[in-house]
Simulated scan of single mutants.
Amino acid sequence: MAGTKENVELCINVSDEVRAQLLQVVINAKELAEQKKRQEIYVGDDDEGNRQSEVPESVMNVLKNSKEFTKMCEMTGKYGQGFKPPSYHDFREKYLKIEKNNIEQILDEFKEEWKRVVEKVGEENVIQIVIDNAANYKVAGQKLMEKRKHLYWTPCAAHCIDLMLEDFEKHIPMHKDTISTGRRITTYIYGRTMLISMLKNFTKGRDFIRPVVTRFATSYLTLACLNEHKGALMTMFCSKE
């Protein structure tokens, strides 16, 4: 079915797409077998007479340092042949509910600690809370203010500024176009190792802050860096290198 033609004739009723998928399974199985074979090749004994295996250093570090990895291997081995990993439904329903209950139990301990802190300070002295501006935080803040009339909620200033900058980029064409152009420049440079090295030569070791999706302030900081090093950038792109 995979089209290897090893010890059997080719099945002509298999579509090209399915054949390609099956062939990849065969290739992966062979690579896994080769990898296992390489790991079982011994290269001699150490000073204490223990046999040393030719296993990549990165793999050995995982085996030595990861207790979770070792435990996983032990549990899989105890289960025996035919082990099947949990299904998507198991993760989504069964194990998600179990994990949710575990987290809620852990949170109960913290909630008791929070209560003791408020009692220690004195509820009448807790007059302000500063939290994020997300919808769930807003609802929590409003409920707290309804329950405790002397308390008021203040949104996080940094998050407010971030949301303002997000609106600038979304609704002001000049901002949107300028940030897009700056992003193309940084993407072009940071997508090429040679240009990154060349950039640092022209900017005397300075690096650009690259824009990311969730932190809109970073886009403006990147523009500031581009503007600050505009001369160095023009020189670099006009150079023979």
Rank of each mutant, 00 (worst) to 15 (best):
D132L: 02
I209R: 05
S239R: 04
E34H: 11
S58T: 14
K111E: 07
G80L: 01
C238Q: 06
Q81E: 06
Y190W: 03
E109I: 15
S239P: 05
C11H: 10
P85T: 09
V130T: 15
N7Y: 14
N61W: 08
V55F: 03
L233E: 01
M194R: 12
T4L: 04
F237W: 03
S197R: 02
E119C: 09
T218R: 08
K200V: 10
S239A: 05
R148A: 07
K97G: 06
H89A: 06
K200T: 14
I185M: 05
N61L: 06
T193K: 03
E74H: 14
M1E: 00
V25C: 12
Q105K: 14
D177K: 15
E112P: 07
L23Y: 14
P56I: 05
T193H: 07
M72N: 11
R116Q: 15
V139F: 08
E112K: 15
K84Y: 09
V118Q: 03
V18F: 07
K84G: 08
D162E: 01
Y95D: 01
E169W: 10
Y79L: 01
S58D: 06
D47H: 07
K100H: 14
V121Y: 10
K94A: 06
A157G: 06
S53N: 04
T214Q: 02
Q21F: 13
L199S: 04
Y190T: 02
W153D: 00
S219D: 05
I98C: 03
R19P: 13
E113N: 13
Q81Y: 13
Y220S: 00
S239N: 04
E68D: 08
F237L: 01
R51M: 07
V117Q: 05
E57D: 05
V117E: 00
T235W: 09
K30C: 13
L63H: 09
E113W: 13
V126T: 08
M234G: 03
Y42P: 01
N227L: 06
T235K: 12
K170E: 05
E40W: 04
D47M: 03
R148M: 08
E48R: 04
V26N: 02
E40K: 04
E166Q: 09
T222P: 05
N61E: 01
Y152M: 00
R206M: 11
D162T: 08
L233S: 10
G44P: 01
T222Q: 02
K5H: 14
E146C: 07
K230W: 11
K5Q: 06
V55P: 01
T70W: 05
G49A: 02
T187L: 02
H171V: 12
E166V: 11
L107S: 14
K138I: 14
E169L: 04
M164I: 15
Y190H: 02
G44R: 00
R206Q: 13
K64P: 04
L233W: 13
I131H: 08
I129E: 00
I103S: 10
M174D: 09
E34M: 09
E31M: 11
K30P: 05
V25W: 12
S219M: 04
E99R: 11
G205P: 04
P56W: 04
V62W: 10
I106K: 08
G3V: 05
W114D: 08
R183G: 11
H175L: 03
M75K: 12
L107F: 15
E31L: 14
D177V: 13
L107R: 15
V18D: 01
C225V: 10
R92H: 15
G141C: 00
Q35A: 09
F202P: 02
L22C: 10
I106P: 03
